[in-house]
Nucleic acid binder design. Structure first.
Lengths: 242, 242
DNA sequence: TCAAAAGTGTTCGATCTACACCCATGC
DNA sequence: GCATGGGTGTAGATCGAACACTTTTGA
């Protein structure tokens, strides 16, 4: 990677990709292609000519294959001497062969080992609609349950927490932007999503009322499942009118 | 200014300092030492060894003399090709003498004219407790009424709006950190502050109840003003117990 | 005793919470 | 019919807005 002025120095972007399926909230965690517990958030750098939101989208696509997804910024982190030097040295020490095979130029190593300030982005997707792609620099890429995350490098684990806090804040107004339910869904499916994200349960009847009162749903046809009970309506998100 | 690796490249900090006094909300706006409407937020760059919050504090002190103030981050801005080149060229064109007197080294000019990504911080202070200092690079430094801001460079005016939005969000929990009222204050003074920040009026009795319910105030002795009416209590913020 | 401002209480309505009641569906 | 789950309604609590009442102060 020739990083000489192609990217902005000492500034990185980290993406927290929340994935939802069947009452489970997961986080997309690639594992760096080295032996050892080197799990890291998908991240990258900002091109000189590129807006930061666009950069976040590109990075997400490069590292995971996920395209055209709305990401939301949740903060900038540059307090601690957040630097990669220790990490790089650990990688070199524990994975001598692989590391030297990378043939990192000295200036690339130096570039990477600088102090970095990181801009955090998160998004929420439907695991079933998104297939993460494994790229060169990763050994694996997995959906990890949010309650059972592996050891992650640097402050990445804390970042997940902060991203989750940001997502919970006013989730109603963000769901539209994300890509997390089918086009049409039942109220129950929506409720399960909320319950999973907030990690608490809601009363069925009150949840329904609250959602309808938000005036963001269009009621569609009923969904007949073949089960011996009343068929639920399907809903879709209203198109934004502004 | 020798910027060669002393500061982090292409990353800047802008500070919005809200000043409050007597039902007026103002913003501290230095004017660059050039002829023309070059008003700018106090800003600066991040030292290599310095956390970003610390950097914001240092910048604020360097540019305004205001010390030991809690600043809060309100966002990162790097969408537009935010760059200073046009600004620098305009300065050079309209202020040839002054500009050349600066004797900017070529590399400094280049450094400054790069694209910059900016981290925004804001704070709120009591105008009467804070005396802004004029520094070399500014012609003047003034408290400008928030409703009557001068033309500001780049997107700085928009930044003020965003900072204000952030400040209004959950002001209750932030007031403690800022340095904006006397140690002891009356409920009326507190109410005026709120009314000024939110630019709307509140019912006296309801405001009182709400504030007391927040459980962040300690009631102190009464304040006898000599006026022919009931003496108000003084209040102080509770010390944080966590 | 009075005016002015501060402190407290009361009413009304909206909203949230818990629960109950009705509906549709397939067996 | 009946069990199952979905949709809606309702009583009680809670919260905030508007307003009224009481208390304190110095003239």
């Amino acid at each position: 990677m020739n990083t000489n002025k192609k990217y902005i120095d000492q500034l990185s972007i980290d993406c927290v990709v929340f994935g939802y399926t069947h009452n489970q909230l997961k986080v997309l965690v690639p594992k760096l292609d080295f032996e050892g517990d080197f799990w890291a958030l998908p991240g990258g750098f900002i091109l000189q000519e590129e807006g930061i939101d666009k950069a976040a989208q590109r990075i997400l696509e490069d590292r995971t294959g996920i395209k055209d997804i709305f990401l939301e910024q949740y903060g900038v982190f540059g307090e601690v001497p957040r630097n990669n030097l220790d990490l790089l040295n650990t990688l070199r020490a524990t994975n001598e062969d692989k590391f030297s095979a990378l043939k990192l130029k000295d200036y690339t190593f130096e570039w990477l080992s600088q102090r970095f300030i990181s801009i955090g982005y998160y998004t929420l997707v439907d695991i079933n609609k998104v297939v993460p792609k494994l790229t060169d620099i990763d050994q694996s890429i997995d959906w990890c349950d949010i309650k059972n995350l592996p050891n992650m490098i640097l402050d990445h684990r804390k970042q997940v927490g902060k991203a989750l806090d940001a997502m919970c804040l006013n989730l109603d107004s963000k769901l539209l932007g994300f890509n997390v339910l089918s086009e049409k869904f039942t109220m129950k499916e929506l409720q399960h999503l909320y319950e999973t994200v907030y990690d608490k349960s809601f009363r069925r009847s009150n949840f329904q009322k609250k959602m309808l009162d938000l005036d963001i749903l269009d009621r569609q046809e009923k969904k007949f499942t073949g089960a011996a009970n009343k068929a639920p309506y399907l809903y879709s998100f209203k198109q934004k009118t502004n």
